[in-house]
Design a protein around this nucleic acid. Structure first.
Lengths: 215, 215
DNA sequence: AATATTGGAGAGCAGTACTATCCAGTTGTC
DNA sequence: GACAACTGGATAGTACTGCTCTCCAATATT
Protein backbone atom coordinates (compact mmCIF):
# COMPACT_ATOMS: atom_id res chain seq x y z
CA UNK A 1 0.00 0.00 0.00
CA UNK A 2 1.37 3.42 -0.92
CA UNK A 3 0.84 6.69 0.85
CA UNK A 4 -2.09 7.83 -1.25
CA UNK A 5 -3.99 4.64 -0.54
CA UNK A 6 -3.22 4.89 3.18
CA UNK A 7 -4.53 8.44 3.14
CA UNK A 8 -7.66 7.37 1.32
CA UNK A 9 -8.41 4.51 3.70
CA UNK A 10 -7.87 6.83 6.65
CA UNK A 11 -10.07 9.51 5.17
CA UNK A 12 -7.41 12.23 5.37
CA UNK A 13 -5.42 14.16 2.74
CA UNK A 14 -2.03 12.82 1.71
CA UNK A 15 -0.41 16.01 2.99
CA UNK A 16 -1.77 15.28 6.45
CA UNK A 17 -0.37 11.75 6.42
CA UNK A 18 3.00 13.18 5.46
CA UNK A 19 2.67 15.64 8.31
CA UNK A 20 1.94 12.86 10.81
CA UNK A 21 4.94 10.92 9.50
CA UNK A 22 7.12 13.98 9.95
CA UNK A 23 5.81 14.50 13.49
CA UNK A 24 6.46 10.89 14.39
CA UNK A 25 2.81 9.98 15.01
CA UNK A 26 2.95 7.36 12.26
CA UNK A 27 5.94 5.07 11.89
CA UNK A 28 7.64 5.28 8.47
CA UNK A 29 6.68 2.67 5.92
CA UNK A 30 9.03 -0.04 4.73
CA UNK A 31 11.17 1.76 2.14
CA UNK A 32 11.33 -0.10 -1.17
CA UNK A 33 13.38 2.54 -2.94
CA UNK A 34 14.56 6.10 -2.45
CA UNK A 35 11.13 7.55 -3.17
CA UNK A 36 8.80 4.69 -2.39
CA UNK A 37 7.57 3.02 0.77
CA UNK A 38 5.13 0.28 1.60
CA UNK A 39 2.45 0.69 4.28
CA UNK A 40 0.34 -2.05 5.85
CA UNK A 41 -2.88 -2.53 7.78
CA UNK A 42 -1.04 -1.62 10.97
CA UNK A 43 -0.56 1.84 9.52
CA UNK A 44 -4.26 2.15 8.77
CA UNK A 45 -5.13 1.25 12.35
CA UNK A 46 -2.49 3.58 13.70
CA UNK A 47 -3.82 6.41 11.55
CA UNK A 48 -7.31 5.83 12.95
CA UNK A 49 -5.90 5.91 16.47
CA UNK A 50 -4.05 9.15 15.77
CA UNK A 51 -7.19 10.76 14.40
CA UNK A 52 -9.13 9.62 17.46
CA UNK A 53 -6.55 11.01 19.86
CA UNK A 54 -6.29 14.35 18.04
CA UNK A 55 -10.02 14.74 17.44
CA UNK A 56 -12.33 13.37 20.16
CA UNK A 57 -9.39 12.86 22.53
CA UNK A 58 -8.49 16.52 22.23
CA UNK A 59 -4.74 15.93 22.39
CA UNK A 60 -2.17 18.17 20.75
CA UNK A 61 0.36 16.72 18.34
CA UNK A 62 3.07 16.82 20.98
CA UNK A 63 0.95 15.08 23.63
CA UNK A 64 -0.28 12.50 21.15
CA UNK A 65 3.34 11.71 20.28
CA UNK A 66 4.14 11.08 23.94
CA UNK A 67 1.06 8.94 24.48
CA UNK A 68 1.81 6.89 21.38
CA UNK A 69 5.39 6.43 22.52
CA UNK A 70 3.98 4.97 25.73
CA UNK A 71 1.70 2.64 23.80
CA UNK A 72 4.66 1.52 21.67
CA UNK A 73 7.06 1.02 24.55
CA UNK A 74 6.84 -2.60 25.59
CA UNK A 75 9.20 -2.11 28.49
CA UNK A 76 6.76 -0.04 30.56
CA UNK A 77 4.53 -1.56 33.19
CA UNK A 78 0.79 -0.95 32.97
CA UNK A 79 1.10 1.36 35.96
CA UNK A 80 3.83 3.44 34.34
CA UNK A 81 1.95 3.54 31.08
CA UNK A 82 -1.25 4.72 32.72
CA UNK A 83 0.58 7.34 34.72
CA UNK A 84 2.33 8.71 31.65
CA UNK A 85 -0.82 8.70 29.57
CA UNK A 86 -2.68 10.42 32.37
CA UNK A 87 0.01 13.08 32.66
CA UNK A 88 -0.17 13.90 28.97
CA UNK A 89 -3.88 14.56 28.88
CA UNK A 90 -4.95 18.15 28.45
CA UNK A 91 -5.40 20.03 31.68
CA UNK A 92 -5.51 23.58 33.00
CA UNK A 93 -1.72 23.98 32.82
CA UNK A 94 -1.93 27.05 35.01
CA UNK A 95 1.20 29.11 35.42
CA UNK A 96 0.39 29.65 39.09
CA UNK A 97 0.40 26.67 41.41
CA UNK A 98 -3.15 26.06 42.71
CA UNK A 99 -3.83 25.44 46.38
CA UNK A 100 -3.78 21.65 46.80
CA UNK A 101 -5.27 21.65 50.29
CA UNK A 102 -8.98 21.37 49.37
CA UNK A 103 -8.27 18.60 46.89
CA UNK A 104 -6.08 16.71 49.35
CA UNK A 105 -8.75 17.02 52.03
CA UNK A 106 -11.26 15.32 49.74
CA UNK A 107 -8.84 12.56 48.80
CA UNK A 108 -8.08 11.86 52.44
CA UNK A 109 -11.77 11.71 53.26
CA UNK A 110 -12.23 9.14 50.52
CA UNK A 111 -9.11 7.21 51.44
CA UNK A 112 -7.72 7.28 47.91
CA UNK A 113 -4.11 6.33 47.38
CA UNK A 114 -2.62 8.58 44.73
CA UNK A 115 0.80 9.83 43.80
CA UNK A 116 1.06 13.37 45.22
CA UNK A 117 3.00 14.41 42.11
CA UNK A 118 0.35 13.35 39.63
CA UNK A 119 -0.88 16.11 37.33
CA UNK A 120 -4.48 15.03 37.93
CA UNK A 121 -4.21 16.25 41.51
CA UNK A 122 -3.16 19.67 40.30
CA UNK A 123 -5.95 19.61 37.72
CA UNK A 124 -8.48 18.85 40.44
CA UNK A 125 -7.15 21.63 42.64
CA UNK A 126 -7.23 24.12 39.75
CA UNK A 127 -10.76 23.10 38.82
CA UNK A 128 -11.98 23.52 42.41
CA UNK A 129 -10.28 26.91 42.59
CA UNK A 130 -11.98 27.98 39.35
CA UNK A 131 -15.38 26.94 40.73
CA UNK A 132 -14.79 28.94 43.87
CA UNK A 133 -13.63 31.95 41.86
CA UNK A 134 -16.80 31.71 39.80
CA UNK A 135 -18.91 31.75 42.96
CA UNK A 136 -19.94 28.10 42.83
CA UNK A 137 -19.77 26.40 46.19
CA UNK A 138 -18.87 22.71 46.04
CA UNK A 139 -20.25 20.99 49.11
CA UNK A 140 -18.69 17.85 50.54
CA UNK A 141 -21.88 16.02 49.69
CA UNK A 142 -21.61 17.08 46.07
CA UNK A 143 -17.94 16.12 45.94
CA UNK A 144 -18.65 12.77 47.61
CA UNK A 145 -21.29 11.91 45.05
CA UNK A 146 -18.87 12.75 42.28
CA UNK A 147 -16.12 10.73 43.88
CA UNK A 148 -18.40 7.70 44.15
CA UNK A 149 -19.34 8.08 40.49
CA UNK A 150 -15.67 8.43 39.48
CA UNK A 151 -14.79 5.39 41.58
CA UNK A 152 -17.41 3.33 39.77
CA UNK A 153 -16.20 4.38 36.37
CA UNK A 154 -12.57 3.79 37.23
CA UNK A 155 -13.44 0.41 38.65
CA UNK A 156 -15.00 -0.71 35.39
CA UNK A 157 -12.13 0.82 33.47
CA UNK A 158 -9.53 -1.13 35.39
CA UNK A 159 -11.53 -4.35 35.17
CA UNK A 160 -11.68 -3.91 31.41
CA UNK A 161 -7.90 -3.92 31.06
CA UNK A 162 -6.83 -7.40 29.96
CA UNK A 163 -4.23 -9.15 32.09
CA UNK A 164 -2.88 -11.63 29.59
CA UNK A 165 -0.86 -9.38 27.30
CA UNK A 166 1.03 -6.37 28.58
CA UNK A 167 0.99 -4.67 25.18
CA UNK A 168 -2.76 -5.05 24.90
CA UNK A 169 -3.22 -3.95 28.49
CA UNK A 170 -1.32 -0.73 27.92
CA UNK A 171 -3.12 0.00 24.67
CA UNK A 172 -6.55 -0.60 26.17
CA UNK A 173 -5.72 1.35 29.31
CA UNK A 174 -4.33 4.35 27.48
CA UNK A 175 -6.95 4.46 24.74
CA UNK A 176 -9.73 3.87 27.24
CA UNK A 177 -8.52 6.54 29.61
CA UNK A 178 -8.39 9.13 26.88
CA UNK A 179 -11.25 8.26 24.57
CA UNK A 180 -13.82 7.48 27.25
CA UNK A 181 -13.58 11.01 28.59
CA UNK A 182 -15.75 12.55 25.87
CA UNK A 183 -18.21 9.71 26.50
CA UNK A 184 -18.48 10.65 30.15
CA UNK A 185 -18.94 14.31 29.38
CA UNK A 186 -21.64 13.57 26.83
CA UNK A 187 -23.40 11.12 29.14
CA UNK A 188 -23.46 13.63 31.97
CA UNK A 189 -24.98 16.29 29.75
CA UNK A 190 -27.62 13.83 28.55
CA UNK A 191 -28.33 12.73 32.10
CA UNK A 192 -28.61 16.37 33.13
CA UNK A 193 -31.13 16.92 30.40
CA UNK A 194 -33.14 13.95 31.54
CA UNK A 195 -32.96 15.00 35.17
CA UNK A 196 -33.75 18.65 34.53
CA UNK A 197 -36.64 17.82 32.25
CA UNK A 198 -38.06 15.73 35.06
CA UNK A 199 -37.47 18.49 37.58
CA UNK A 200 -38.17 21.69 35.69
CA UNK A 201 -40.59 20.65 32.98
CA UNK A 202 -43.52 21.03 35.35
CA UNK A 203 -42.63 24.57 36.41
CA UNK A 204 -41.52 25.70 32.95
CA UNK A 205 -43.61 25.48 29.80
CA UNK A 206 -44.33 21.79 29.79
CA UNK A 207 -44.32 21.07 26.08
CA UNK A 208 -40.68 22.06 25.76
CA UNK A 209 -39.64 18.91 27.53
CA UNK A 210 -39.64 16.54 24.62
CA UNK A 211 -39.34 18.96 21.69
CA UNK A 212 -36.45 21.20 20.78
CA UNK A 213 -35.85 23.51 23.71
CA UNK A 214 -34.75 26.42 21.54
CA UNK A 215 -36.20 26.89 18.11
CA UNK B 1 -12.79 51.65 39.96
CA UNK B 2 -10.90 52.28 36.75
CA UNK B 3 -9.77 49.75 34.20
CA UNK B 4 -6.27 49.34 35.58
CA UNK B 5 -7.63 48.51 39.02
CA UNK B 6 -10.12 46.04 37.57
CA UNK B 7 -7.29 44.38 35.69
CA UNK B 8 -5.17 44.23 38.80
CA UNK B 9 -7.92 42.70 40.93
CA UNK B 10 -8.61 40.15 38.23
CA UNK B 11 -4.96 39.31 37.84
CA UNK B 12 -4.89 39.99 34.10
CA UNK B 13 -3.18 42.67 31.99
CA UNK B 14 -5.13 45.80 31.13
CA UNK B 15 -4.85 44.96 27.43
CA UNK B 16 -6.68 41.70 28.10
CA UNK B 17 -9.50 43.45 29.92
CA UNK B 18 -9.85 45.78 26.97
CA UNK B 19 -9.94 42.74 24.71
CA UNK B 20 -12.73 41.14 26.74
CA UNK B 21 -14.68 44.40 26.67
CA UNK B 22 -14.30 44.54 22.91
CA UNK B 23 -15.41 40.94 22.57
CA UNK B 24 -18.46 41.54 24.72
CA UNK B 25 -17.43 39.17 27.52
CA UNK B 26 -17.41 42.05 30.00
CA UNK B 27 -20.14 44.68 29.99
CA UNK B 28 -18.85 48.24 29.49
CA UNK B 29 -18.33 50.34 32.59
CA UNK B 30 -20.48 53.32 33.45
CA UNK B 31 -18.97 56.09 31.30
CA UNK B 32 -18.14 59.22 33.29
CA UNK B 33 -16.62 61.08 30.34
CA UNK B 34 -15.40 60.49 26.82
CA UNK B 35 -12.30 58.64 28.00
CA UNK B 36 -13.22 57.41 31.45
CA UNK B 37 -15.48 54.73 32.83
CA UNK B 38 -16.30 53.34 36.26
CA UNK B 39 -16.28 49.63 37.04
CA UNK B 40 -17.75 47.90 40.10
CA UNK B 41 -17.51 44.64 42.02
CA UNK B 42 -19.85 43.04 39.54
CA UNK B 43 -17.17 43.53 36.91
CA UNK B 44 -14.57 41.86 39.11
CA UNK B 45 -16.82 38.83 39.58
CA UNK B 46 -17.63 38.74 35.91
CA UNK B 47 -13.96 38.87 35.02
CA UNK B 48 -13.29 35.89 37.31
CA UNK B 49 -16.13 34.00 35.64
CA UNK B 50 -14.75 34.79 32.20
CA UNK B 51 -11.30 33.58 33.18
CA UNK B 52 -12.80 30.38 34.60
CA UNK B 53 -14.80 29.70 31.44
CA UNK B 54 -11.86 30.38 29.12
CA UNK B 55 -9.28 28.54 31.23
CA UNK B 56 -10.51 25.45 33.09
CA UNK B 57 -13.81 25.49 31.21
CA UNK B 58 -11.96 25.29 27.92
CA UNK B 59 -14.38 27.53 26.06
CA UNK B 60 -13.43 29.71 23.12
CA UNK B 61 -14.17 33.43 23.18
CA UNK B 62 -17.14 32.95 20.88
CA UNK B 63 -18.67 30.14 22.95
CA UNK B 64 -18.03 31.99 26.19
CA UNK B 65 -19.89 34.98 24.76
CA UNK B 66 -22.91 32.83 23.97
CA UNK B 67 -22.87 31.17 27.38
CA UNK B 68 -22.60 34.51 29.15
CA UNK B 69 -25.45 35.86 27.06
CA UNK B 70 -27.53 32.96 28.38
CA UNK B 71 -26.51 33.72 31.95
CA UNK B 72 -27.46 37.37 31.42
CA UNK B 73 -30.77 36.70 29.71
CA UNK B 74 -33.44 36.72 32.40
CA UNK B 75 -36.16 35.78 29.96
CA UNK B 76 -34.90 32.20 29.47
CA UNK B 77 -36.20 29.28 31.44
CA UNK B 78 -33.73 27.13 33.34
CA UNK B 79 -34.34 24.39 30.79
CA UNK B 80 -33.56 26.67 27.85
CA UNK B 81 -30.51 28.04 29.59
CA UNK B 82 -29.12 24.60 30.32
CA UNK B 83 -29.77 23.45 26.78
CA UNK B 84 -28.02 26.46 25.30
CA UNK B 85 -25.09 26.22 27.67
CA UNK B 86 -24.81 22.52 26.93
CA UNK B 87 -24.83 23.17 23.21
CA UNK B 88 -21.99 25.66 23.44
CA UNK B 89 -19.59 23.39 25.22
CA UNK B 90 -16.65 22.13 23.24
CA UNK B 91 -17.28 18.88 21.46
CA UNK B 92 -15.99 16.84 18.54
CA UNK B 93 -17.63 19.13 15.96
CA UNK B 94 -17.12 16.50 13.28
CA UNK B 95 -17.80 17.51 9.71
CA UNK B 96 -19.31 14.12 9.01
CA UNK B 97 -22.49 13.10 10.82
CA UNK B 98 -21.74 10.20 13.18
CA UNK B 99 -23.99 7.14 13.32
CA UNK B 100 -26.49 7.85 16.08
CA UNK B 101 -27.84 4.31 16.30
CA UNK B 102 -25.50 2.90 18.97
CA UNK B 103 -25.97 5.95 21.16
CA UNK B 104 -29.75 5.86 20.77
CA UNK B 105 -29.78 2.17 21.62
CA UNK B 106 -28.04 2.88 24.90
CA UNK B 107 -30.39 5.75 25.74
CA UNK B 108 -33.41 3.62 25.06
CA UNK B 109 -32.06 0.85 27.26
CA UNK B 110 -31.64 3.35 30.07
CA UNK B 111 -34.99 5.01 29.46
CA UNK B 112 -33.53 8.48 29.28
CA UNK B 113 -35.68 11.28 27.88
CA UNK B 114 -33.52 13.59 25.81
CA UNK B 115 -34.02 15.98 22.96
CA UNK B 116 -32.95 14.10 19.80
CA UNK B 117 -31.47 17.35 18.46
CA UNK B 118 -29.17 17.95 21.39
CA UNK B 119 -25.48 18.25 20.50
CA UNK B 120 -24.56 15.97 23.40
CA UNK B 121 -26.21 13.06 21.58
CA UNK B 122 -23.99 13.71 18.57
CA UNK B 123 -20.97 14.05 20.84
CA UNK B 124 -21.74 10.69 22.41
CA UNK B 125 -22.16 9.06 19.02
CA UNK B 126 -18.89 10.57 17.77
CA UNK B 127 -17.05 9.45 20.88
CA UNK B 128 -18.36 5.90 20.57
CA UNK B 129 -17.37 5.86 16.91
CA UNK B 130 -13.87 7.04 17.79
CA UNK B 131 -13.52 4.27 20.37
CA UNK B 132 -14.58 1.69 17.83
CA UNK B 133 -12.19 3.11 15.25
CA UNK B 134 -9.40 2.88 17.79
CA UNK B 135 -10.19 -0.78 18.40
CA UNK B 136 -11.72 -0.33 21.84
CA UNK B 137 -14.86 -2.33 22.34
CA UNK B 138 -17.41 -0.72 24.66
CA UNK B 139 -19.57 -3.42 26.17
CA UNK B 140 -23.12 -2.79 27.34
CA UNK B 141 -21.98 -3.50 30.88
CA UNK B 142 -19.28 -0.88 30.63
CA UNK B 143 -21.70 1.64 29.16
CA UNK B 144 -24.31 0.83 31.80
CA UNK B 145 -21.85 1.49 34.61
CA UNK B 146 -20.94 4.80 33.04
CA UNK B 147 -24.58 5.73 32.59
CA UNK B 148 -25.31 5.00 36.22
CA UNK B 149 -22.35 7.15 37.26
CA UNK B 150 -23.46 9.96 34.96
CA UNK B 151 -26.99 9.70 36.31
CA UNK B 152 -25.74 10.08 39.87
CA UNK B 153 -23.65 13.11 39.03
CA UNK B 154 -26.44 14.75 37.07
CA UNK B 155 -28.85 14.05 39.88
CA UNK B 156 -26.69 15.91 42.38
CA UNK B 157 -26.13 18.66 39.83
CA UNK B 158 -29.83 19.23 39.35
CA UNK B 159 -30.54 19.08 43.07
CA UNK B 160 -27.91 21.76 43.59
CA UNK B 161 -29.69 24.24 41.35
CA UNK B 162 -31.65 26.63 43.57
CA UNK B 163 -35.35 26.99 42.85
CA UNK B 164 -36.02 30.35 44.45
CA UNK B 165 -34.35 32.70 41.96
CA UNK B 166 -34.39 32.02 38.24
CA UNK B 167 -31.29 34.14 37.67
CA UNK B 168 -29.34 32.26 40.32
CA UNK B 169 -30.64 28.95 39.03
CA UNK B 170 -29.41 29.66 35.53
CA UNK B 171 -26.03 30.89 36.75
CA UNK B 172 -25.48 27.88 38.99
CA UNK B 173 -26.67 25.46 36.34
CA UNK B 174 -24.53 26.90 33.60
CA UNK B 175 -21.42 27.42 35.68
CA UNK B 176 -21.81 24.03 37.31
CA UNK B 177 -22.32 22.22 34.04
CA UNK B 178 -19.20 23.71 32.55
CA UNK B 179 -16.77 24.01 35.44
CA UNK B 180 -17.51 20.65 37.05
CA UNK B 181 -16.38 18.83 33.93
CA UNK B 182 -12.67 19.23 34.64
CA UNK B 183 -13.43 18.07 38.19
CA UNK B 184 -14.98 14.86 36.89
CA UNK B 185 -12.09 14.20 34.53
CA UNK B 186 -9.54 14.77 37.26
CA UNK B 187 -11.47 12.61 39.73
CA UNK B 188 -11.69 9.75 37.28
CA UNK B 189 -7.96 9.83 36.65
CA UNK B 190 -7.28 9.86 40.37
CA UNK B 191 -9.72 7.03 40.93
CA UNK B 192 -8.06 5.11 38.12
CA UNK B 193 -4.74 5.57 39.79
CA UNK B 194 -6.12 4.31 43.06
CA UNK B 195 -7.83 1.36 41.40
CA UNK B 196 -4.88 0.40 39.23
CA UNK B 197 -2.43 0.67 42.10
CA UNK B 198 -4.63 -1.76 43.98
CA UNK B 199 -4.88 -4.07 41.02
CA UNK B 200 -1.47 -3.89 39.38
CA UNK B 201 0.85 -2.96 42.22
CA UNK B 202 1.11 -6.59 43.27
CA UNK B 203 2.10 -7.87 39.83
CA UNK B 204 4.32 -4.87 38.95
CA UNK B 205 7.19 -3.60 41.05
CA UNK B 206 5.37 -2.94 44.27
CA UNK B 207 7.27 0.07 45.57
CA UNK B 208 6.22 2.17 42.59
CA UNK B 209 2.72 2.36 43.94
CA UNK B 210 3.17 5.20 46.36
CA UNK B 211 6.26 6.92 44.93
CA UNK B 212 6.61 8.78 41.67
CA UNK B 213 5.85 6.28 38.91
CA UNK B 214 8.22 7.90 36.41
CA UNK B 215 11.39 9.61 37.48
C1' DA C 1 9.24 8.28 -23.96
C1' DA C 2 5.60 10.51 -21.57
C1' DT C 3 3.01 11.00 -17.61
C1' DA C 4 1.90 10.38 -12.84
C1' DT C 5 3.17 9.48 -8.25
C1' DT C 6 6.28 9.17 -4.37
C1' DG C 7 8.95 10.61 -0.15
C1' DG C 8 10.85 14.44 1.78
C1' DA C 9 11.47 19.20 3.13
C1' DG C 10 10.25 24.06 3.58
C1' DA C 11 7.15 27.65 3.36
C1' DG C 12 2.58 29.31 3.77
C1' DC C 13 -2.10 29.65 5.82
C1' DA C 14 -6.19 30.15 8.88
C1' DG C 15 -7.81 30.44 13.48
C1' DT C 16 -7.25 31.70 18.40
C1' DA C 17 -6.08 34.39 22.32
C1' DC C 18 -3.97 37.64 23.38
C1' DT C 19 -0.41 41.89 23.34
C1' DA C 20 1.62 46.16 21.78
C1' DT C 21 1.23 50.57 19.75
C1' DC C 22 -0.92 54.65 18.86
C1' DC C 23 -4.13 58.45 19.72
C1' DA C 24 -6.68 62.29 21.52
C1' DG C 25 -9.28 63.32 25.62
C1' DT C 26 -9.09 63.60 30.83
C1' DT C 27 -7.23 63.61 35.35
C1' DG C 28 -4.40 64.53 39.23
C1' DT C 29 -0.39 67.28 40.92
C1' DC C 30 2.20 70.91 41.73
C1' DG D 1 -2.44 76.12 34.48
C1' DA D 2 1.43 73.36 32.87
C1' DC D 3 2.46 68.59 32.45
C1' DA D 4 3.08 63.83 33.13
C1' DA D 5 0.18 59.85 33.74
C1' DC D 6 -3.73 57.45 32.67
C1' DT D 7 -8.06 56.44 30.06
C1' DG D 8 -11.13 54.26 26.42
C1' DG D 9 -10.96 52.98 21.81
C1' DA D 10 -9.10 51.27 17.60
C1' DT D 11 -5.64 48.83 14.73
C1' DA D 12 -1.99 46.02 13.98
C1' DG D 13 1.18 42.56 15.36
C1' DT D 14 2.51 38.16 17.91
C1' DA D 15 3.04 33.18 19.20
C1' DC D 16 1.24 28.90 18.66
C1' DT D 17 -1.31 25.10 16.44
C1' DG D 18 -2.67 21.97 12.92
C1' DC D 19 -2.61 21.48 8.87
C1' DT D 20 -1.91 22.48 3.51
C1' DC D 21 0.73 23.89 -0.55
C1' DT D 22 4.62 23.91 -3.42
C1' DC D 23 8.61 22.24 -5.00
C1' DC D 24 12.08 18.62 -6.06
C1' DA D 25 14.47 14.72 -8.01
C1' DA D 26 13.72 9.81 -8.07
C1' DT D 27 10.83 6.20 -9.35
C1' DA D 28 6.56 3.83 -11.33
C1' DT D 29 3.24 3.20 -14.75
C1' DT D 30 1.47 3.20 -19.42
Amino acid sequence: MRISQLAERGGVPVATVKYYLREGLLPPGRATSATQAEYGDAHVERLALVRALLGPGGLTIARARTVLAVVDDDSLTVLDALATASAELPGPEADVEPDLAPALAHLERWGWLVDPATPALRHLAAALAALEAAGFEVTDAHADAYAEAARRMASVDVETVPDDSRGDAVRVAVVGTILLEPVIIALRRLAQQDASVRRFAASDAGEQATSRPQG
